[in-house]
């Protein structure tokens, strides 16, 4: 269950920013947004499940599988899934395979700019345990320690059919009200931040990218 956040400090330090830039950025903590109860939330979840906008940001080699998804062969538009070029408007971010440290920073920025409720789909074995890059010096092994993942799609690379199956599973999760990744992120914010800052050495962005 979602915890109450009253005991935590409400302001973020934004220690990575230079002093003269701090006033430019928001220092509020992300908060848990409790879902409605009963029929109304079920209706809204139905709408969320049938209108999934994915962020068109290819974070790794898996992004190559997203092109046939959108074109005539596999056509995900018929399931209400559409690409969206800006994180503000999208509800799903797809981690396409291996995630280098440099990309992780961009993934965090994009993920935090998305609006609650937001979902994460992780493709390929690299996102689960590092895959063939498990001992590489500049890729991370488990994306789950940095942002909350809703669905993993195993494979190297997963075929477009597998990705469609993953989307269907995600829809079931959303409809049953279990895809509360954004609230999970807000609840365990300090843990996620500590993990992220352990990997990203040049942290020159605000603690939460509103």
């Amino acid at each position: 269950m979602l915890k109450n956040q009253e005991n935590q400090p409400q302001k973020l330090a934004n220690a990575g920013l230079p002093e003269h830039e701090k006033y430019l950025f928001c220092d509020a903590r992300p908060r848990i947004r409790h879902p409605f109860k009963g029929f109304w939330e079920k209706f809204l979840n139905w709408a969320r499940a049938n209108s999934i906008w994915m962020l068109a940001y290819g974070t790794g080699c898996g992004a190559i599988e997203l092109r046939p998804l959108m074109t005539a062969r596999y056509d995900v538009f018929r399931y209400g899934i559409a690409p969206r070029p800006t994180p503000r408007q999208s509800s799903v971010i797809i981690i396409g395979g291996y995630c280098s440290v440099k990309t992780l920073k961009r993934i965090i920025r994009s993920y935090e700019q998305m609006q609650n409720p937001k979902f994460v789909l992780a493709l390929g074995s690299c996102t689960i345990n590092g895959g063939m890059y498990w001992d590489s010096y500049n890729t991370i092994n488990r994306i789950d320690a940095y942002i909350p993942v809703d669905i993993y799609i195993a494979g190297c690379m997963p075929r477009p059919e597998a990705i469609i199956a993953g989307f269907k599973k995600l829809k079931q999760l959303i409809k049953s009200g279990k895809a509360e990744g954004a609230n999970l992120y807000a609840e365990n914010f300090d843990w996620y931040k500590a993990n992220q800052k352990k990997i990203i050495k040049d942290w020159n962005m605000p603690d939460y990218n509103w």
Binding site: R33, P35, L44, N50, S51, A72, R78, S91, Q115
Partner: peptide
């Protein structure tokens, strides 16, 4: 392609209004 269902714009609007946060 087959394309999205006819009522997709309605669902999109409901979904956008159902987002919990705004900047």
């Amino acid at each position: 392609r087959f394309g999205p269902p006819l009522w997709q714009p309605f669902i999109d609007i409901i979904k956008n209004n159902a987002k919990r946060t705004m900047i």
